[in-house]
Design a binder for these strands. Structure first.
Length: 268
DNA sequence: CTGCCCCTGTAA
DNA sequence: TTACAGGGGCAG
């Protein structure tokens, strides 16, 4: 599932493969993908245009064309990549944009929750203005992090996953960062001292960087993301298994409707 | 703030 | 056969 590192890895590949390319045809296989526009409107908006630049805002991908922006969000199972033959797209493709070099950009999305819209220049940026700082970009200084995460009354895990506070951290990396920092995910953000905030800030940046290294090298081409030895979750998905650090059983609880995994020995 | 919903593959 | 996983939008 794409979190921030996977989305960043996708952006890097797209920059390599799309720069200077022109879209010659657009085929949509799932009308919801470009809602509220219709597939015909979408095709009209992007056909004939050249890619100018690729930008990432949190987990949103903005592919700027000459007179429009392709705004993509991979959600849970989406992926964007190019293939050599537009006729040989995967069955799970939600969209296929044929390029002027006879290759095609595919939005592959088995669960179909992803988004690919054509919007006016500037529209996506305005819509995303409320996103918090990006932990992979250097925007997230310790002072800024402390103000965002330390200020909230809800649990620190819930705060970390709030995109208006930090852009890009979700269930897996939030759990991993909290484990690394030795912090109980249930602890209210407002009750984190300076030491814990500093440790957590470091842990977030570290775990995302390692995730990025894994996402860049662990990619298997069309078909999705693979796990590599670089990123082995310490707690995520490991309920009942012994903690790799202290041996106690990893616990699983529910926090605001989502699973949280943590080690009751290491995280306080 | 919490909880439901979108969707579909996988696991109990 | 049903429950669940996940990100995010939105209703309550």
């Amino acid at each position: 599932m794409p979190e921030l590192p996977e989305v960043e890895a996708v952006c890097r590949r797209l920059r390599r493969h799309l720069s200077g390319r022109r879209i010659v045809a657009a085929r949509l296989f799932r009308a919801r993908l470009c809602a509220p526009q219709s597939p015909a409107q979408f095709a009209r908006a992007v056909t004939g245009q050249r890619f100018v630049s690729i930008e990432r805002r949190g987990k949103n991908i903005l592919a700027h064309l000459e007179r429009a922006t392709l705004w993509a969000h991979l959600r849970l199972t989406g992926n964007l990549y190019t293939i050599s033959d537009p006729e040989r797209r995967p069955a799970t493709a939600s969209a296929c944009l044929v390029l002027d070099n006879a290759r095609a950009l595919v939005f592959d999305d088995p669960r179909g929750l992803g988004m690919l819209r054509a919007v006016a220049p500037g529209e996506a940026g305005r819509a995303l203005a409320g996103l918090g700082p990006d932990p992979l970009s250097g925007e997230l200084t310790l002072a800024r992090f402390a103000a965002l995460a330390g200020g909230g009354r809800s649990s620190i895990k819930t705060l970390l996953m709030d995109q208006k506070r930090l852009a890009g951290l979700r269930n897996i990396y939030a759990a991993e960062a909290l484990f690394r920092a030795g912090i109980d995910p249930r602890r209210p953000g407002a009750r984190l001292g300076k030491v814990r905030l500093r440790r957590l800030h470091r842990a977030i940046v570290q775990v995302l960087r390692e995730g990025l290294a894994s996402a860049v090298t662990g990619y298997r081409g069309p078909g999705g993301f693979v796990e590599t030895e670089f990123f082995q979750p310490a707690v995520y998905g490991r309920q009942g298994l012994p903690c790799r650090r202290c041996g106690r059983k990893i616990r699983r609880i529910r926090q605001s409707g989502r699973s949280t995994f943590f080690c009751p020995g290491c995280q306080r």
